[in-house]
Each structure stands twice: as structure tokens, then as C-alpha cells.
Simulated scan of single mutants.
Amino acid sequence: MATQQDFNEALLKLAILMYRIDGKIRLNEQELLDEIGDQLDWQGVNSITAVQNQALADVRQAISSNQVEGYLTNLKPALQFDKQQALDTARELMQSDGEEAQQERRLYDLLVQML
């Protein structure tokens, strides 16, 4: 069973994936990502910055190697801790720049199916 910290880490990774999936990084998306991180009750062994940095590298790799679905599948058990918050966070990031990219919609739809 996933813990709150497992969920926090998975939610942060999901947010980074949603933020990077369309290849366009906008200031309002970055600000929202920072806000999401600031709101987490972080109790991890690793700092939030370390987890973010590793997640950025992992997300870049998943996108470039066309393994996004596998990356998301690995997050699924922890995201099920609070499905609604995971879906709300993904939707908020998808809509944050006022433009819903096809890649973002596909990823969100996949997340809905998984959860």
C-alpha cells in the first residue's frame, strides 16, 4: 500500500511529465509546478529538489525513448493513494497555459484509464 510520501513523489513526477510532454515549457506551467511542490508535505529521505532533478532526467528519457506509458504505469500504484488529486493536478497542468496540446490530452486520457 502506498504511503503519503510515495504519493507525493509520484504526484511530483506526474506533474513534471505533464509539464514536459508537449515539449513547450511556459512560465505559468513552471510556476504551477513550483506551487505544487511547495504544497506537498514532504517527508522524504531525499530532498524535493533531488527528486525533481531525477524526475526531470527520467521524464526526458521516457519522452525521448517513447516510454511515456511505461513511466506512467510505474507511477500508478502510488497515484492510487489519492486518485482525485492526481487527476486534478494533471488536468490543472494540462490547462494552465490556456492551450491543450494533443500529447497532454493523450497523457491525461491514459491517466484516467489507469486510475
Rank of each mutant, 00 (worst) to 15 (best):
M1H: 13
Q5C: 10
D6L: 12
D6T: 09
D6G: 12
D6W: 12
F7A: 01
F7V: 02
N8S: 09
E9P: 08
E9R: 15
A10Y: 04
L11K: 14
L11M: 10
L11H: 09
L11E: 08
L12R: 03
K13P: 05
K13T: 06
K13H: 09
I16E: 05
Y19P: 03
I21S: 02
I21Q: 00
D22W: 02
D22G: 02
D22H: 03
G23Q: 02
G23F: 07
G23K: 03
G23V: 07
K24F: 06
K24L: 13
I25A: 02
R26I: 03
L27V: 09
L27N: 13
L27K: 12
L27F: 14
L27M: 15
N28I: 00
E29A: 01
Q30F: 00
Q30A: 01
Q30K: 01
E31A: 13
L32F: 01
L33H: 01
D34Y: 06
E35A: 14
E35M: 13
I36W: 09
I36C: 06
D38S: 14
L40A: 08
W42Y: 02
Q43E: 11
Q43H: 13
Q43A: 10
N46G: 06
S47C: 10
I48E: 12
I48Y: 11
A50Q: 13
V51N: 02
Q52I: 04
N53R: 07
N53E: 15
Q54W: 10
A55E: 01
A55P: 00
L56G: 04
L56F: 10
A57L: 05
D58P: 01
D58H: 00
R60Q: 15
A62I: 01
A62C: 00
I63C: 01
S64V: 10
S65P: 03
S65C: 07
S65T: 15
S65A: 14
S65W: 11
N66G: 10
V68A: 03
E69T: 15
G70R: 09
G70L: 11
Y71K: 05
L72D: 02
L72K: 12
L72E: 03
T73Q: 12
T73E: 13
N74R: 11
L75T: 04
L75Q: 04
L75D: 04
L75N: 05
A78L: 04
L79T: 12
Q80V: 12
F81R: 12
K83W: 05
K83G: 08
A86M: 08
A90I: 04
E92V: 03
G98Q: 01
G98R: 01
G98E: 02
E100W: 06
E100V: 15
A101H: 08
A101W: 11
Q103W: 08
Q103H: 09
E104I: 00
R105Y: 11
R105K: 15
Y108A: 02
Y108G: 04
Y108I: 09
Y108D: 07
Y108W: 10
L110H: 10
L110R: 15
L110K: 15
L110V: 08
L111Q: 06
V112I: 09
V112Y: 08
V112H: 08
L115M: 14
